[in-house]
Design a protein around this nucleic acid. Structure first.
Length: 555
RNA sequence: GCGCCUGUAGCUCAGUUGGAUAGAGCAACGGACUUCUAAUCCGUAGGUCGGGGGUUCGAAUCCCUCCAGGCGUGCCA
């Protein structure tokens, strides 16, 4: 890549300058290279001179000047080098080098934009993990889109990734679920029972009750609650989980593993983690309860793991779960949590550290709420009352591609407005179609070429130097930025950078397409442009794939 | 009360982890289809980066403070 080459030349130059005693280079000094906002500042700019000025106690301009003089550009990568402003060194890459970069994209094809920064690092992404007490709603959809895209991005950048769903099948919620279904079942069979507010109100509870009626007729009508409850809970939990699984599959999300909370209790993992922490000296007893001393790892107060009544807390099983993750060998554990778990982050980090992990071995990401709108007006939702728009409804209405793309347009820790009407709109308001349309247009160029029996893909007769328009060069530069977008997306765990990049790329393409014909009389020019446009197609397709959005050939 | 997050154009948001003159999309206004897909393009306008102070060659970005909003703050799950 051109940026890497540039950096190489710069560090070589720096090294030379140091050897010749032109100026001092502080240990650990790193060269920063950036793409300037302003075109007149070149393709790349570096602030080495500015950063070296202070330790050398001399003017940045002088340093820049002698640096430029020493510049070790043997291959002639730079067309122009100049010192500007307070001491920036602006570099213009020679056009021929840019043209070569285009070849790189074609050569790497599906592998373009997959820098190996992970080096096989073993990473787990745990996401959605909604309680199996009701169908997934829009908010879960966002978590699903973000988690899955993150996993894709990490995979593409050389990480070994596992996707996991944690099933909260142990607590009182599942019991409540069972009770809800049981009560509806009793009502169905004509019994007058009260249905408390604490129970789940949604219609899906009635559906499950009917199923129980179909299977068991009235055999549980007179059973004791204790007897009936476990049967009803198990059944309802299982059925709802099936539904969740199907919803996620339809959304294009596939997990490597579904992990049961209950199994942590059954295997003794919960007791074991408490024991581990006890041995490590992080557990103490107070007021009849067992406390984890999370304050010694930065939490604001210590946390109970075993209550005075002998019951373990939810946090205890979370500790066990994370211990299990690390025992499975994950070097990095990423959890996507709903925004309401905000207050649990510190204690979880503390837990991981108490288990002997570096702070960096855990990364908790908050996925903020989704504001569902219709034509700009808020759609009322209340889980308690059982009124919510399910993920399935949304996918059914706007389609999987639009939903996924929109979920990924903003950073996940800020709230997102999701307008159902807008998501369906087939216009520029809707970035999904804008990007997909660019892809489809390029495909249609290929189709026309085929119809006319033009072999535009013939690389042997390719004259890349026919690409001499500023827009063409600009497009190539934009394409060469793509691997960096992916890299930073992976490094900062921020998928939203990709839709942003895609929208910009699509915009540049649409404009180019409008103003210049690809297929035309001048066959050599047509071939060169075709080559460029195909590179754009490769990048759009690769990027969309990471997002889990399709790249249609026709629209 | 304490803690965390957010505050950038009328709206929704980016901003390459401290760089040079602040960036998109939408909405508004005006234009472009005999062409490889108009699900498109071109143009115009829009700003005290919440306020103030500090750090330095340089701040939307880091520190302090104030203001506004959101969330969290159980031996709940």
């Amino acid at each position: 890549m051109i940026k890497d080459k540039t950096l190489e030349i710069l560090s070589k130059t720096l090294h030379q300058c140091g050897e010749r005693g032109l100026f001092q280079i502080p240990p650990g000094f790193e060269i920063q290279l950036e793409v300037p906002r302003i075109e007149a500042h070149g393709d790349f700019a570096t602030n080495v001179a500015l950063n070296l000025a202070k330790p050398n106690r001399c003017s940045p301009k002088d340093i820049a000047a002698s640096f430029v003089e020493q510049l070790a550009d043997g291959e002639g990568l730079f067309a122009k080098v100049e010192v500007a402003g307070p001491g920036f060194i602006n570099l213009v890459i020679s056009p021929s080098a840019w043209l070569e970069a285009l070849g790189e994209i074609h050569r790497l094809d599906k592998k373009y934009g997959c820098p190996d920064i992970g080096r096989g690092r073993y990473v787990q992404v745990e996401f959605v993990s909604a309680n199996p007490t009701g169908p997934l709603h829009v908010g879960h959809g966002r978590g699903a889109a973000v988690g899955d895209a993150l996993a894709n991005i990490l995979e593409a950048t050389g990480h070994r990734v596992e996707r996991e769903y944690y099933i909260n099948d142990a607590g009182t919620q599942v019991e409540t679920l069972g009770r809800s279904v049981l009560l509806r079942y009793q009502q169905l069979l004509g019994r007058r029972v009260e249905f408390p507010e604490t129970c789940y109100q949604g219609d899906y509870i009635r559906v499950l009750a009917r199923e129980m009626q179909d299977i068991h007729a009235d055999s549980y009508l007179d059973a004791t609650e204790e007897e009936a409850l476990s049967v009803f809970s198990d059944y309802a939990g299982k059925r709802i989980l099936e539904g969740i699984r199907t919803d996620l599959e339809e959304f294009g999300v596939h997990y490597d593993r579904w992990f049961s909370e209950k199994s942590l209790y059954e295997s003794g993992a919960v007791e074991r983690v408490i024991e581990t922490l006890k041995v490590a000296g992080h557990i103490y007893e107070k007021d009849g309860a067992l406390w984890f001393q999370s304050t010694s790892f930065g939490d604001e107060k210590d946390r109970v793991v075993v209550r005075a009544n002998g019951m373990t807390t939810y946090f205890a099983s979370d500790l066990a779960y994370h211990q299990d993750k690390y025992l499975r060998g994950f070097q990095l554990v990423i959890d996507l949590w709903g925004a309401d778990h905000h207050g649990y982050m510190d204690r979880m980090y503390a837990g991981a550290m108490a288990l002997g992990k570096e702070r960096e071995a855990l990364n908790l990401l908050l996925v903020q709420l989704v504001n569902l709108l219709r034509k700009g007006k808020q759609v009322a939702m209340s889980t308690r009352a059982g009124e919510f728009v399910t993920l399935q409804d949304v996918i059914g209405e706007v389609g999987r591609d639009a939903a996924r793309f929109i979920f990924l347009t903003r950073r996940s820790d800020s709230p997102l407005d999701f307008d159902l009407e807008l998501a369906k709109e087939k216009s520029a308001d809707n970035p999904v179609y804008y990007v997909q349309y660019a892809h489809a247009r390029i495909c249609s160029i290929s189709r026309l070429a085929e119809e006319r029996q033009l072999d535009l893909a013939d690389e042997k007769t390719l004259e890349l130097n026919r690409l001499e328009l500023p827009e063409e060069l600009a497009l190539i530069k934009q394409l060469s930025l793509y691997p960096e977008v992916i890299e930073s997306s992976a490094r900062f765990l921020e998928p939203h950078r990709i839709p942003y990049y895609l929208t910009q790329l699509a915009s540049a393409f649409h404009s180019y397409y409008k103003h210049h014909r690809i297929i035309q009389e001048d066959l050599a020019l047509a071939k060169a442009r075709f080559h460029l446009v195909q590179a754009i197609r490769i990048v759009i397709r690769n990027a969309l794939e990471l997002l889990g959005v399709s790249a249609p050939e026709k629209m």
